[in-house]
Design a protein around this nucleic acid. Structure first.
Length: 420
RNA sequence: GUGGGUGUAGCUCAGUUGGUUAGAGCACCAGAUUGUGGCUCUGGGGGUCGUGGGUUCAAUUCCCAUCACUCACCCCA
């Protein structure tokens, strides 16, 4: 019989790794609280339309990476490939703007994209992120950036680079798109179908193409930064000023566009020098157009999403220790049926007293039980054999020093407390 | 979807220019120590050599196909 294996691009997070996840999650929650962001959790699946309309039909995510299926009522359902659209949907559906004009939310969530896996890219992966909804001010943009950096700093991630750019507001983008389209149509003689499609539908996305044949043309392409209207230019400048005032260093990258249709104004990306080809650990920006797509009403918002697997990979390759392995306080070695029974009650007493504790469940030899205690990195072993049982005592051994002494049952818990 | 790399013990990997019973280290189990872990020594269990086919007297080795894993491209966290 063939054993069933996990689905390609998925991962089991085993006990040796899960403490790193919880440590990172704790850091995220702590820092989010410092910045006054509240947690939101949304369903793992949504109506396909949410992503098709929200993210954009022509984006890579929607056009070729979604896990989409029909449920029994023939509705088209999609496992969420990103969190911004679901959060915005929940914000609107639950009428959160009625509670407060500004809503600051964060999430930690699994996401799904059907791509070919490679280092730092999975089919089920996890992101944490923040969404600042209800303010169109550049100060909000800057806060999400410093929030992301604060989390990375707090877990000790080094070698990060912040890239920023602006894609302008709708008013500057429409005329610029036309200028770009004309430029590319003139310059690119033999566009591939993909490039042709992008020129037609979203010429901005040609800018972040990595096709070496286009590299030279992209460099000469008209820059959006030269075609920004007054509002957009001012917005971008303010964001940069705030970052400078906070001593946050950044690199301006005019080809940074980001794949999703809903971005406006500020876009940014944080990369790590410790990773392979997939070196972006965080991406974000302002998305004032998304609310419009979902609800018909414009809603200013800005946020970021960061990849948990990539953060952990970067930490691992820079040798960052974020979680201590947990060890066991007490291990009961029981010899003989009567002792095994007594050990079960004693386990409960130890646990009630707050000692992490365990015992052998296989009635193995004393040597084997000691080995097990050692494997579990037990600090103390409580030996309970026929002799000890008869005298109402444990032989308690300190596994580090090797010292051992008899301690009566009624003093055992107190004894451990003084030593622990 | 496309290209490269790798599939041999639980893990990391050697190896056979095609030839008898396929190896090491680590891990595991047992003994040395009849009720004491870690260190040491001795012994032991464990393999469809990814799968299917081809060439051959003979294939784990050569060839083809296929699957899995992995890295990379496009793009993204």
């Amino acid at each position: 019989m063939n054993p069933i294996k996990r689905i390609k691009g998925t991962q089991d997070i085993l006990p040796e790794d899960s403490p790193k996840w919880t440590a990172l999650e704790e850091t995220i929650r702590k820092t989010m609280a410092l910045f006054n962001y509240k947690e939101i959790r949304t369903p793992v699946f949504e109506l396909t339309d949410l992503f098709a309309r929200g993210i954009g039909e022509l984006t890579d995510i929607v056009s070729k990476e979604m896990y989409t299926f029909q449920d029994r009522s023939k509705k088209s359902i999609t496992l969420k490939p990103e969190m911004t659209a679901p959060v915005m949907r929940a914000y609107i559906e639950n009428n959160l703007q009625a509670k407060s004009q500004i809503t600051k939310l964060f999430y930690i969530s699994p996401l799904f994209r059907q791509e070919n896996p490679q280092a730092g890219r999975l089919r089920q992966f996890h992101q944490f992120g923040a969404e600042f909804i209800g303010a169109g001010s550049p100060e909000a943009d800057a806060e999400t950036i410093s929030l992301a950096l604060a989390i990375f700093k707090s877990i000790g991630l080094k070698g990060l680079e912040l890239n920023i750019n602006t894609v302008g507001d709708a008013e500057s983008r429409v005329p610029y798109k036309k200028i770009l389209q004309d430029f590319f149509n003139d310059e690119i003689k033999t566009p591939s179908d993909e490039v042709k499609r992008r020129i037609e539908n979203n010429p901005l996305r040609v800018l972040d193409s990595k096709d070496p044949q286009l590299e030279e043309i992209i460099e000469r392409a008209p820059k959006l930064i030269d075609h920004l209207n007054e509002t957009s230019a001012q917005h971008y400048q303010t964001v940069k000023n705030i970052l400078k005032a906070q001593d946050i260093s950044f690199i301006e990258d005019t080809t940074l566009v980001r794949g999703l249709d809903y971005y406006t104004h500020t876009v940014y990306e944080i990369t790590s020098s410790w990773l392979g080809a997939q070196n972006a650990i965080c991406g974000g920006g302002r998305y004032d157009l998304l609310g419009q797509e979902i609800s018909g009403k414009p809603i200013p918002a800005v946020g970021f999403a960061a990849g948990i697997e990539r953060v952990l990979m970067a930490l691992a390759s820079q040798d960052g220790q974020i979680a201590e392995p947990r060890q066991l306080d007490a291990f009961i070695i029981a010899l003989g049926d009567d002792a095994v029974n007594a050990a079960q009650s004693w386990l409960m007493k130890l646990r009630n007293a707050g000692f992490t504790s365990d015992t052998d469940f296989l009635k193995r030899s004393m040597k084997a039980q000691f080995r097990e205690a050692n494997r579990q990195q037990a600090k103390f072993v409580l030996i309970l054999g026929e002799n000890e049982l008869a005298q109402n005592l444990f032989a308690i051994k300190n596994m580090e020093s090797g010292e051992q002494q008899d301690v009566s049952f009624d003093q055992a818990i107190e004894f451990l407390k003084t030593l622990n």
